[in-house]
């Protein structure tokens, strides 16, 4: 009934093949991630000069920008994985989206904390309703809802379907909220822009460790999602075995 599988990317959607692949890929990415993050952060913390305007707070960028980047990319990955699940019904895809949820939420939390701590000396307050910070807070709420929906539904396929629908609708509303936040508080905090705008020249003394740190966070995300997906596959297999036991007994 099923056509003979030809070698393609989709083969890794088979749980067994995915387990075999991730068996050696996971340690590799994990160690690379640890190394890149260590190098990037040590370089950034100890070996970069102070900014003439922001002083040593510029060092927070090596945490803030990579985590913010991964917070958004994690949601984007969840969106793609949800679409793959809804269209091609690959279980690994749905489970990878589930595994990415908590990782993305934690990245959002790190971006929020570092943003707030950075804001304290710059704006004189721990929390400013800056549009960017506000959008990240809303993104965090979306992550919470997504994770809660996954854990609330008993049947795994139903949970995968419903969270995928939520992820797609949520993506649209997250983008809308982003524009709403800008509209809502435009012009109040233009002075203290958090990220380095594309136009401004940034010295390689900052760029190099930033890129290393960004690579590290990306690899860490990959490693954690691989590990989480492996766990979800095992949990799913466990559930299937328990169900079968119950059916036979």
């Amino acid at each position: 009934m099923t056509p003979t599988p030809r070698p393609s990317l989709w083969e890794y959607a088979n749980p067994v093949k995915f387990m075999r692949l991730s068996d050696w890929l996971l340690p590799l990415t994990a160690w690379l991630a640890a190394a890149a993050i260590a190098v990037g952060l040590v370089w950034g913390f100890f070996l970069t000069p102070d900014d003439f305007r922001q002083g040593s707070t510029v060092k927070i960028i090596f945490l803030h920008v990579p985590s913010a980047l991964m917070a958004i990319n994690a949601w984007a990955m969840m969106l793609v994985a949800s679409l793959v699940w809804l269209i091609r019904r690959h279980h690994v895809s749905a489970l990878a989206a589930r595994a990415a949820g908590p990782v993305g939420a934690m990245m959002t939390l790190i971006a929020l904390f570092t943003g707030a701590i950075w804001g304290q000396p710059m704006w004189g307050t721990w929390w400013a309703w800056d549009p960017r910070l506000t959008s990240f807070l809303i993104l965090f709420l979306f992550y919470l809802g997504y994770i809660a929906l996954w854990s609330a539904i008993e049947d795994p396929d139903t949970a995968a379907d419903l969270t995928a629908v939520l992820c797609i609708v949520g993506s649209v509303f997250a983008v809308l909220s982003r524009y709403a936040a800008i509209f809502w508080n435009q012009g109040l905090h233009q002075g203290a822009s958090l990220s380095v705008a594309p136009g401004t020249r940034m010295d390689w003394a900052y760029k190099a460790p930033l890129y290393v740190s960004m690579t590290g966070f990306g690899l860490l995300f990959l490693a954690l999602v691989l590990a989480g997906t492996r766990t979800e596959i095992r949990a799913r297999r466990m559930k299937a075995l328990i169900n079968r036991e119950r059916m036979q007994g």
Partner: peptide, 13 residues
């Protein structure tokens, strides 16, 4: 029978 076409939980067994 316990082993059914893949696509459902059985794919994980």
């Amino acid at each position: 029978a316990p082993r059914a076409p893949d696509g459902f939980d059985e794919a994980f067994v």
